[in-house]
Design a protein around this nucleic acid. Structure first.
Lengths: 195, 195
DNA sequence: GAAAAACCTGAACGCGCGTTCAATTCAAGC
DNA sequence: GCTTGAATTGAACGCGCGTTCAGGTTTTTC
């Protein structure tokens, strides 16, 4: 999907991606033109095609790289009890999402603008994330430390709840990130534990 | 915002709105053209302007009417203890959202495509909904039946969790709507109650 | 410092966009 | 069955879209 080597490619290429990420997140993929991205980078529209084969590939690459990073991050989860692991997931999810807002945003807003094959690839990566979370819930359920009537539903509920943070959290606001993480972990802990 | 009287206005007008709702939900506002909507209705593009002043008004009206309906529905909440009211909200939210998927979808996907004034109007309506939910949490907190460190955060967490249902629930799937509602209510109940 | 490679410009392509409007069709009321 | 006015057509408007590419510029390599 286009790229390569040369000195400028290592400067302008990333710039293109950064501009596209920011603009896609702010205005939406369909509403952003290649000329807009080019203007942001300080270049003519034609020059973008040195770095991407087309607009769709630009979106796909951004989404794909984001999901790869997320999964790589999740894979660093330390060993521990289901409770410890779930707490780690809650904190990782909130922390990662807050430090990659644009990437998170396009990854769940722009799925429908992916061509079918690309859609399949990204959906699979997302599914892998969900499965990894669910595995922890299943383990806790089997060990009797969680009481969860349906682990799949609980997984989706927890992820949705955590995703919500990005819609309202503002740095320097009323609540510190640490406090937000603690409160969410408390709610999640109660939600999966028996009464 | 265009409309009026005549026999056809009472037939084609709603058709336009229905088509726009469906198409906006499926492909996104920016990606749908007036000609596409017209084709769906079985009419030429120019004819749409009998029923709407422009594309933006079409989106705004759909979002505004949706939010109005939601708030009207929420206003039918019966009296009861904070616990009973919160359960009612959980079930209402899930039930309403599942029966108005397209409206829900555009209302949280297309906010950014609203012109500033329209954005303000819709944001205010949404805020009213959040405030009504928070009021129940505050009441429960004051009466000592809920233990919530931050009612605003809890409100956002609950709403985000409930919104998530629309992303995975499929009618005729593994779980009935009643069962989904009960499980979610259980999770919410635990999340807001003291350990 | 020449040759090669990478990068970029600027113009062009065909196309579909949102919107307008004169002309026409249609349906209802008398 | 004619009048009236709403509903619709179909063409047109200027514009910006994604993408291509021949040619010029800059950078790297030896």
């Amino acid at each position: 999907m286009a790229r390569k080597t040369g000195s400028h490619a290592e400067i302008t290429g990333p710039k293109v991606r950064e501009a596209a990420l920011r603009l896609f997140a702010q205005y939406g993929y369909a509403a952003v033109s290649m000329r807009q991205i080019a203007r942001e980078v300080g270049v003519q529209a034609g020059a973008l095609y040195t770095y991407t084969s087309d607009k769709q590939a630009l979106l796909f690459d951004l989404m794909h790289d984001h999901m790869s990073e997320v999964l790589a991050g999740l894979a660093t989860m330390p060993d521990g009890s289901p409770g410890e692991r779930l707490e780690w997931i809650v904190r990782f999810h909130i922390g990662y999402n807050l430090s990659h807002k644009d990437g998170v945003f396009i990854n769940y807003m722009e799925l429908r603008n992916l061509e079918p094959e690309n859609h399949k690839v990204i959906s699979k990566l997302r599914r892998r994330y969900e499965d990894a979370v669910e595995a922890v819930l299943v383990e806790g359920q089997e060990k009797g430390v969680f009481q969860i009537p349906d682990t799949r539903l609980a997984t989706m509920a927890v992820i949705a709840m955590l995703n919500g943070v990005n819609t309202w959290y503002r740095e320097g606001g009323r609540l510190s990130q640490e406090r937000v993480e603690r409160i969410y972990w408390n709610m999640v802990r109660r939600a999966v534990k028996g009464a």
